[in-house]
Structures are given as C-alpha cells and as structure tokens.
C-alpha cells in the first residue's frame, strides 16, 4: 500500500546551518532514500522548490484567479513529497521514524493513498449515461 509522506521544514532553520551541517543533513537523507529504494519502499518522491516560486489557483467571481504563493502562512513549509511503499500504516511509521531529516527539525505527515477506483468507476458510468443520451 502507498503512503504519501509530506515533509515539512523550517527554511529559517536551514538558512541558519553551516555548510558542513547542511551537507551532513543532505548526505544522510540521500543515503536513507537509497536504503528505502534498495528495499522497494521508495515508490516516488519529489523535492519542492521554495514557497515563493509557486502560485495558487482558485475560483473567484465565476473565473479562475491566481495569487502568488500558497495561502497558509506557517513557519514550516512543505519541502518535499515521498511516496512510500509499505505493508501498512505502522510499517510506514517505522520507516519514516528513521528518516534523518527528523533530527534536523523537519516533520512528516503520513497519509495513506486514497483509492478512487470505485469513485472513478461510478463517475465513468455517470458520464457514459450522459453521452448516450
């Protein structure tokens, strides 16, 4: 089963690190990713560029509108997404508990991947009916 692990970090804290500290952190994290990959647990993952590089789309007055950055103003920001292949929730917890980023102040939110196959099937049926009409 897949678990989406959302890793949050505090950019101010990272900025305050020495280069040696930052390198140590990065090396440890990549090494752990390799370990996860070697054991088939690393299904996918992406790092995110900083918040100010993104924008948010939403619906306003019947049109799509956009705004810089995301809405939430928190100290922590989403730094990356890891799709973990684990047997169950506790296995996912165990694997992420060993992630070196935790030691450096990052935090992870672990969410089971949703199974939309039933919903998609129902939706396809509804849409099929519409076109048949």
């Amino acid at each position: 089963m897949k678990y989406i692990c959302l890793g949050y970090y505090d950019p101010a804290k990272h900025a305050g690190m020495t280069e040696a500290e930052r390198n140590a952190m990065v090396d440890e994290c990549f090494e752990y990713d390799d370990h996860l990959r070697a054991n088939g647990h690393f299904a996918a993952g992406e790092a995110l560029q900083p918040r100010e590089t993104g924008l948010t789309l939403y619906w306003k007055n019947g049109k799509v509108a956009s705004t810089d950055g995301p809405y939430a103003e928190t100290k922590e920001q989403l730094g990356g997404i890891l799709v973990l292949e684990a047997r169950d929730m506790n296995h996912a917890i165990q694997l992420i508990s060993q992630h070196p980023a935790l030691k450096y102040g990052s935090l992870f939110e672990i969410r089971p991947a949703g199974d939309l196959s039933e919903m998609m099937k129902a939706s396809e049926q509804r849409r099929g009916k519409l076109t048949a009409r």
Partner: peptide, 20 residues
C-alpha cells in the same frame, strides 16, 4: 519511474530512481 531532480534549493527529500 525516471531519475530527475530539478530542485534549486537542497532539501532533505530526494527524487526518484528506478525501482527494483
């Protein structure tokens, strides 16, 4: 999956390489 990491800022979260 394909291996690609286009991130500018180094972050503790890596990108992908192939699965076994």
């Amino acid at each position: 999956t394909t291996a690609h990491c286009g991130c500018v800022e180094l972050s503790p979260f890596a990108s992908l390489t192939g699965m076994p």
